[in-house]
């Protein structure tokens, strides 16, 4: 069976969960790029390349990063803003998961129940999720892969997301610092 590659969509209504196609989560120290396990450093460089070359790169910080400002969240927040500045990315928050009525304002927020609205409205070609609870991130990633051509990145604090086009696991202050370094290296023309 040909290996399933988790590439940007649109894959159509109800895209399959990548896990159903045999895509496995990265092991400690690894990341995922298009469904393949790679070294964490390789994944960080691939994400950095995407961010640097994107027309409208955008960070989507979720509730775990936006609320309850622990020291860790503050530092992670500072680094996310720093990376966003470095690549000229927008920051559009996902403050909660309510499917708001009549609809969210896609110019200023993103929602896991219809993330495609924000992607389409802002013409986002690379979207980075961070601080979003696992099941809501999976939902958003699948919808985006189903209906848009946006390249998705999941900077996960746990085991990574197989439905993202690229994902890091155990994302903490150190790995965000490493991603910032990777972005600077890519901007200077690579290693």
């Amino acid at each position: 069976m040909e290996r399933y590659r988790v590439v940007p969509g649109p894959e159509g209504y109800l895209p399959p969960a990548a896990a159903l196609h045999g895509v496995e989560l990265p092991l400690p120290g690894q990341g995922l790029v298009e469904g393949s396990r790679v070294e964490g450093r390789t994944a960080a460089l691939a994400i950095a390349e995407r961010l640097v070359s994107a027309s409208v790169p955008t960070f989507f910080p979720g509730p775990l990063l936006l609320w309850k400002s622990t020291e860790e969240a503050l530092e992670r927040g500072r680094l996310v803003r720093e990376i966003a500045r470095e690549v000229g990315a927008k920051v559009i928050p996902m403050p909660d998961y309510r499917p708001k009525y009549p609809m969210i304002d896609p110019a200023v927020e993103i929602n896991p129940n219809h993330p495609n609205l924000t992607i389409w409205f802002n013409k986002i070609d690379v979207g980075v999720f961070i601080g979003v609870h696992c099941h809501q991130a999976n939902l958003a990633l699948k919808i985006i892969r189903g209906g848009t051509s946006c390249f998705t990145v999941a900077l996960c604090a746990h085991e990574g997301h197989e439905d993202a086009n690229a994902s890091l696991r155990d994302t903490d202050v150190a790995s965000l610092t490493a991603l910032l370094d990777a972005v600077r290296i890519v901007k200077q023309g690579g290693e």
């Binding site: 936006l66 609320w67 309850k68 400002s69 927040g77 996310v80 559009i92 403050p95």
Partner: peptide, 19 residues
Amino acid sequence: LEITRMNPHFADVMPQEYT
């Protein structure tokens, strides 16, 4: 209550409703 405190690094991009 502590969850209702906003991370200051994102205060400028939070939708008005949440502020």
